[in-house]
Simulated scan of single mutants.
Amino acid sequence: MLNASSNTSSGAMLPPKLRDEWMRLRELEPNLRARDLAERLGVSEAELVAIRCGDGVTRLEGPWKDLILALPELGHVMVLTRNDSCVHEKKGTFGHIDIGASMGVVLDEAIDLRLFLKHWIYGFAVREESRGRWLQSLQFFDADGCAVHKIYLTDQSHREAWSGLVGRFAAGVQSPLLDRQAVAEPLPLLLDDTQVDVASLRDAWRAMRDPHDFFALLKKHKVTRTQALRLVGPEFARPVVNASIRHALETVAASGLPIMVFVGSPGVVQIHTGPVHNIKPMGPWLNVLDEDFNLHLREDHIVESWVVKKPSPEGAVTSLELYDARGGQIVQLFGKRKPGVPELTEWRELADGLPATEDEHV
């Protein structure tokens, strides 16, 4: 299997052969999704898209800032952001975009995104058949070929605008090659627990004025997320059973309590705000299947679950946070809130009532 530093120029499988292998595997297992197809073939998802340039796929080039600012032209779309364990799908329109050269936000009523453009390396417009339907999408990938964000047209989208946007941002060279490069861990473990100044970490946590200060706190103290949660103590973080996510979703679905659901890739954090309704477990997947919001979560990937409290001027902000075996964040849940407004009491009571793990250190 190729590792993250492999590329198609030095790898064993050149585009024509890779395309043949992709077509053969699709015929054998037509229900495999793109990410799973890539894994089975030992390549990145972006490589499987690139080999089809000129056949339903158009390679795009930036500036991505300009392309993102043009996305309101598409009208109603579905946006998709995922990591290895969770897929977040949301329908709506792009609007209220504020973006610079490297970072941006989309703050429309339904589509709510945080954008980190250094991870938007490759872009493609894709037209493909999937399970009897023709889909049109814009797909963006990191340097290692992993997807960071996808935008799908819906029945209500402006398809003429899609064609115009693709024409404006089409790359001059429609190459099927992809120079795949390693992507550094966002916050590698720099200190082991015995080297961390735990008292200073706790003081800094207590002094936070906004939950958005959390990443800066991690960098300053050279700790990962789960390491910080282990060390900061029960005043701010306590481990809970991994079934907590199912209980929380089923409880808010029954009560109508509005929540916020955050799922991130390296390049995007995507947020749903509002109620959830249809909670459907299917094998290892725990799903939210609502009209304008879908969540697909691999429960068997959850290794740690934490109830976390971060200070804000309006009082503590409480979250349920799930992590995988590598300490990667899978998903975060909050009660619905806005800056300047205290969090919902019902959400805090739900989170505080989630059962603790038998081993408080996980």
Rank of each mutant, 00 (worst) to 15 (best):
R206V: 02
D197C: 01
H301E: 06
P30F: 12
Q332G: 03
P234F: 01
E109Q: 09
G62M: 05
T154L: 03
V196Q: 08
R131N: 08
E299R: 06
L344D: 04
V269I: 15
T357D: 03
E343A: 08
D55T: 06
M23C: 08
N287S: 04
P281K: 13
F169E: 00
G123E: 03
P188Q: 04
Q332M: 13
G274D: 13
L333K: 03
V331D: 01
V87D: 09
R159C: 01
L333S: 03
M1G: 15
V79A: 07
L74S: 06
A12R: 11
D292A: 14
L344F: 05
P239R: 12
S265A: 14
W205G: 08
Q227V: 03
V126S: 01
G264Y: 12
F236L: 11
L2S: 10
L190A: 15
P266Q: 13
W134C: 07
S10F: 04
S10D: 02
R114E: 08
L286I: 06
D213Q: 14
A101S: 14
R238P: 15
G54E: 02
I68E: 01
S200T: 13
C53V: 12
V79W: 03
S102W: 11
A228N: 01
Q332I: 15
V79P: 00
L201P: 00
G42L: 03
V240T: 01
I245E: 00
F94Y: 15
D112T: 02
C53H: 00
D210K: 11
N3E: 14
L350M: 02
M208G: 09
A216P: 09
E27Q: 11
Y323K: 00
H158P: 01
E185N: 12
G283T: 07
D142E: 12
K91I: 08
M282N: 14
A12C: 07
L320C: 05
N3S: 15
P239L: 10
A143H: 05
G267Y: 15
L74T: 10
G267E: 15
H96R: 15
R82V: 09
G274N: 09
L344T: 11
M103A: 14
Q156Y: 07
F236K: 00
V196N: 06
S163N: 05
L354Y: 02
Q270P: 10
G123M: 10
D292G: 10
L74V: 11
T58W: 08
R159H: 06
Q195Y: 00
T251Q: 05
D213Y: 03
H149N: 04
E27A: 11
M13P: 00
L32V: 10
Q136V: 11
L18N: 00
R326N: 05
S85H: 11
P234M: 01
P311H: 07
L48Y: 08
G172K: 07
V232D: 04
I279M: 01
S244C: 09
F214W: 12
K118C: 05
R35Q: 06
A70E: 10
V43S: 07
L138K: 03
I99D: 09
H272V: 11
L231H: 03
Q181T: 04
D213S: 06
L201C: 05
L37V: 06
E109A: 12
R168I: 07
E39I: 00
C86V: 12
L201K: 00
Y323F: 15
L37H: 04
H212G: 02
N31Y: 06
D112F: 06
W162K: 06
